[in-house]
Simulated assay, not measured.
Amino acid sequence: VVLIGYMGSGKSTIGKELAILLSYNFLDLDDYISEREETTITDIFKEKGEIYFRKKETEYLNEIINSLDNVVLALGGGTPCYGNNLSVIKKSENIISVYLKLSIPLLAKRLFPERGNRPLISHLKSEEELIEFIGKHLFERSPFYAKADYIINTDYKSKKDILEAILMQLI
């Protein structure tokens, strides 16, 4: 099961719980990249740039898809939008993709306090700037996210409700 969605949409949080319910392993692609590169995502962006990061992201995504079964994989927010990542996910018969869709104001509310840990938004000074940034980003990314097998609207839903909605699609 591959979880896609914008940063802050709950992919890792929901993914960990979903993995437990399914008796699968959980992997966060960003954590996997950090581990393999032996540095943080922030430092990869700073020292080697986004292009290097996106190449590594594709490489490690393919590695995971081709070598692991029974995994809940939380992608980075941009992963489905770069290279052939989305087509690799869509072409695999063993993968079910789920888009965790959260509204812009709720994303901003979640992300603003933790923007220091997120390289793409660390420079934004106000919640208004963040809302504008997310809006532009989502405009570009939504067509990719919308190609997921299932779309779960997570606005004002509890973890339990989100997990139930995903499990209903997987049955």
Rank of each mutant, 00 (worst) to 15 (best):
V1F: 08
V1P: 10
V1G: 06
L3I: 02
I4C: 06
I4A: 04
I4R: 01
Y6M: 02
G10A: 05
G10F: 05
S12Y: 08
T13S: 00
I14V: 15
G15N: 01
K16Q: 13
L18R: 01
L22I: 08
S23Y: 14
S23W: 03
Y24T: 04
Y24W: 01
F26Q: 05
F26T: 05
L27M: 12
D28K: 04
L29Q: 00
D30K: 08
D30F: 04
Y32Q: 09
R36M: 14
T42M: 15
D43M: 12
E47F: 11
K48C: 09
G49A: 15
E50Y: 01
K55E: 04
K55S: 05
K56L: 07
Y60S: 08
N62Q: 12
E63P: 12
E63N: 12
E63K: 15
I64T: 02
N66D: 05
N70T: 08
A74G: 00
G76E: 00
G77H: 01
G77K: 06
G78P: 03
P80M: 13
C81K: 02
N84C: 07
N85Y: 04
L86F: 05
L86E: 02
L86V: 07
S87W: 10
S87Y: 07
V88Y: 03
I89T: 01
K91G: 09
K91T: 06
S92I: 09
E93N: 13
S97F: 04
V98M: 06
V98A: 13
L100K: 07
L100Y: 03
K101Q: 14
K101V: 13
L102S: 09
L102G: 00
L106C: 05
L106F: 14
L107N: 03
A108C: 02
R110Q: 03
R110K: 12
R110W: 06
R110C: 09
G116N: 14
G116A: 11
G116T: 10
N117S: 15
R118M: 04
R118W: 11
R118A: 08
R118P: 02
P119F: 13
P119K: 02
L120H: 03
L120S: 06
L120W: 05
H123A: 12
L124C: 06
S126A: 03
E127K: 15
F133V: 01
G135W: 08
H137Q: 10
L138Y: 09
F139I: 03
A146D: 11
I151P: 05
I152T: 01
N153P: 04
N153E: 15
T154G: 07
D155L: 08
Y156V: 14
K157N: 11
I162C: 00
I162S: 02
L163C: 12
L163H: 02
L163T: 14
L163S: 04
E164V: 10
A165C: 07
I166F: 09
I166G: 07
L167E: 07
Q169C: 14
Q169K: 13
L170W: 03
I171N: 08
I171Y: 12
I171D: 12
